[in-house]
Design a protein around this nucleic acid. Sequence first.
DNA 1: TTGACTTTCTAAAACGTTTTCGGTAAGATG
DNA 2: CATCTTACCGAAAACGTTTTAGAAAGTCAA
Lengths: 339, 339
Amino acid sequence: MGITIKDVAAKAGLSVSTVSKVFNHYADISPETKELVMEVAQSIGYYPNATARALKTNRSYNLGFLFDENASSGITHPFFAEVINAFKNECESRGYDMTFINRNVGQTQMSYLNHCRYRNVDGVCLAGVDFFSREIHDLIYSDVPSVSIDHVFETRPSVVSENTRGIQDLTEFAIQRGHTRIAYIHGETTSSVTRHRITGFYRTMTAHSLPVPPEYFLEGKYLDSRRCRELVLNLLSLPEPPTFILLPDDVSYLGAIEAANIKGRIIGQDISFAGYDGIQMIQYLKPKLTTIRQNTEEMGKKAADLLIDMIEQPNTAGSEITYITGKLLEGKTVAVLNG
Amino acid sequence: MGITIKDVAAKAGLSVSTVSKVFNHYADISPETKELVMEVAQSIGYYPNATARALKTNRSYNLGFLFDENASSGITHPFFAEVINAFKNECESRGYDMTFINRNVGQTQMSYLNHCRYRNVDGVCLAGVDFFSREIHDLIYSDVPSVSIDHVFETRPSVVSENTRGIQDLTEFAIQRGHTRIAYIHGETTSSVTRHRITGFYRTMTAHSLPVPPEYFLEGKYLDSRRCRELVLNLLSLPEPPTFILLPDDVSYLGAIEAANIKGRIIGQDISFAGYDGIQMIQYLKPKLTTIRQNTEEMGKKAADLLIDMIEQPNTAGSEITYITGKLLEGKTVAVLNG
DNA sequence: TTGACTTTCTAAAACGTTTTCGGTAAGATG
DNA sequence: CATCTTACCGAAAACGTTTTAGAAAGTCAA
C-alpha cells in the first residue's frame, strides 16, 4: 500500500538492512550512504512503519492511559484533564504516543491487562481509577510497566500530590485567622486521596486542641456541587454552625456559593470556605476562592518521565514515590476573626 | 514474550491457521473446534496481538484525533474535552481505540500525515485546528480517511454545529425582549465558526433593520475572559453603551461579570449578556447565563460514526455535512426592556 | 606478499498474525 | 462401488520491519 523500506532500498541501490540501519543510527554505515538513504527517503516520502517495527522490537512507543473507568466525567474532569494533558505533552516530546485504555473494546469486554497486551503499549499510567479493584491489581502486578497517580503500590513508582500537607496548610490557615469551628466536607472515603486529606485535617485540629464534632465532619462527593450545596445548607442550619468549611474541591464551591446566598451569608465575612485543586475557571469567581493549587503540570510530566525511564532503563526501575506539593492560593473567602 | 497464537495451537493440537480462523469467525470451523480453541485461549490467557494483525491486514482499529496544534488549552478546553470524550466513547463501543496525532514525536518533527501513516491509524478526526494550513491540507487530501468537526472540506464528511443559527437565535431572543443596541464580541475571524456566527448576527440585525455601529462589533478571543473583560469595559464606557452584549463563549462570561461589577451594572437589569457553548460549570454562576448549549455529545459521536462508516464501507463514503443544532438555554442574564 | 584488522555492507531469519489454496475424510448420490 | 459434495482443517506465503552473523573489500604492518 504505502511506501516501504524496500522502495527506499531499491531506489538507493542498497539492501533493506542498510536502510534500516540508517534509520536506527547504526555505527557501521558510511556518512555517504547515510546521506544517500536520507535523501531518497525524503524524496519518495518514506516513513518507517510503527506497527512493523513494534512487531519486531516489541516496543510500540505507545503509552496507555487508564482512568475513570465509570466514565462519568472522563476527560471532562477539570483536574484530570490538566494532568492528562501534561502527561501527553511529555510523552510526545520523548517520542511516545498515548492511547486510552479501557475495558469495552467493541462488543467484547476486555480486561485492562488484555487491552494493554492487545495494543502492545510499552507502559501504562493509572489515575483516578478504583485502585482496589481486582482488574487494576492484575494489571499492576503484571509485567507491563506502570506508574500510578495519587495512589501508591509498593512495587511501582507513583506520583502523589501532598494531600495531607495541603489540607494541613488550609486548616492551619483558617486557625491562624481565628477560626475554631471548622467543618470538613470531604470526598469519597474509598480513595486514598481523601483519607490522606482527612489525616491532615485531624492532625492539624488535634495539634491545636480543637474539637471536631461529628456534625462538622461530613462525607460529600467530589465534583458534585449540588450535593455540596445541600451539605453546606445543613451546616449553616446547625444551632452552632461552623465559621469555616473545607470543601471537597473547587467545583464544590459553586454549590457553596448558592448555599451561602440562600442563607444570606456573605462569603469571606459571615462564612469562610476553602476548596482544593486550584482550577483556573473557578478562580474567576467572586469572591475568589482560597484553595490549594495542585501542580497538575508537574504531576503529568513526572508520571510520564517515571514511566518512560522505567521502560528505557528497566534495570534502574524502582518504586519511588514522587511527592508533588501544591500551593496555597489565598483568595477572599476566608474571614479574619482575630483581626 | 507473551502468549501467542502458536501456544494456543500447540495446546489445542491444531494448526495456527485454524486458531486464527476461530478468532476471525471463519465459517469453515466446526463448533467443537471453535469451542476447544476458545477454551484453550481462555485458559492460557491468549489475546490476539493488534500490531501483528495490523501489519497483515493493514487495519489498526486505531483512530487518530487531531486538534489544537498550538496546544494552548489542549484537552483542557471545556468544549473540546466534551467532544473528544464523546468521540472516544463511540470509538470504543465500536471496537476502536484513539490516539492523539501531533507533530512533534520525539526530537524529530513529523507532519500530521506522516504521523498518521507511522501509526497506521485507520482514520483521523480533526477539530479545532488551523484548517487552512498546508499540513492539514496535505492530510485531508491524502488517502487516509478523515472527518472534520466545525469545518467543511468538500471531499470529506464533516460535523458542524449550526453556528449561524445559534447566534441568530440569541440575537432574536434579545430583540424580542426589546434590545436594539446590541454589541457582538466575536472570536478569532480565522475560524469559519466565527464567520458563520458573524453571518448569523448581521443577518438577524439586518432583518430587523437594526444598525451595527462599528464600536459595537469587536474582535475578542475565545476562552480569554481577561480580554473579554477589557472589551466589555470599553463597551460600557461608550457614550451610548449597548444594552446587550453577545460574548465569544461561556468562559468569557467570567470576564464580563467582572467588568459589570466594576462598572456597577447589575447583570440581567442594567446590562444583558449571552454566551455560547453551554458549559456545565458556567451554568452554576449567578446570574445564570443565557447561552447556546452545543450538543457536544452528538458531535463527537457522529464524527466517530461517520469516520468508522467511511472506513468500514469505503464505497458508500460521501462528503455529507451533518448539522448539529444547539439549544438555547435561557438564563437570567437578559433584561426585558419592553416589559 | 601475507595475515590481521577495519569498515561497510548484505542475506536471512524472525516477530505474530491473516488468508489463499489445497487436501483429506466423511457423507451423499447414482 | 465409484464418484461427487461437503465440511473441516493445514501449509505456506506474506505484511514491513530489525538484527545477527558473516562476506567483501580495503588498510596496514611486518
